[in-house]
Amino acid sequence: MNHGPLIFLGVFFTFASSWLALVFTPYVQLQHLTAAKSGETASSYPRPIAGLALVGQRVYSRDGCMYCHTQQVRPEGFGADFERGWGPRRTVARDYIYDRPVMLGTMRTGPDLANIGVRQPSVEWHHLHLYNPRITSPGSIMPSYAFLYRKQKIVGQPSDDALELPEEYAIEPGYEIVPTEEARALVAYLLRQDRTYPLPEAEQ
């Protein structure tokens, strides 16, 4: 192996082989996936993420929720994703065509969130949980996202969206905790996590 050009060609072709197999061929297979209708549904799924939820996707990405939570349900019989109630069916490639970036995740320090919008549809629950996870889930090691909330003086009536904190987490009287725009966006994004609709390749 004393020929520079030979080494160069080998280095080039071994790399090109993986590019062909892991990048190009899947591209041909999946790049043109579109939303689809399954037998009984009237509209096509999935639906594009839009509005406040789109801002929330940015917050989810920026604060790294993905590093403790996945957004994928494994097939039945592989792990216990079904038994834990994380989804009625496995997730498939079509479920993610509008995600940018795609945040499948590789770690389950916390539970899977692929269908969290269905499993936990309460806006109030999510705000309390993000403000301090120990309020709703004692023993949790999730970080507090209190920096997405604002403490303000109550002027006249308390705000509609003020958090109803239990006694042991109460703040001084005359003040209230309200979600910022980012907190509301993040909750909108979480509630949008619903991959329970049927798809042609993944009937329930």
């Binding site: 892991l22 899947p26 999946l30 996936l33 079509r94 479920d95 995600d99 940018r100 795609v102």
Partner: peptide, 13 residues
């Protein structure tokens, strides 16, 4: 960005 899960495969590649 490529579509959907292709980002994940490029990511791990």
């Amino acid at each position: 960005p490529v579509r959907g899960v292709l980002q994940a495969s490029v990511n791990w590649w």
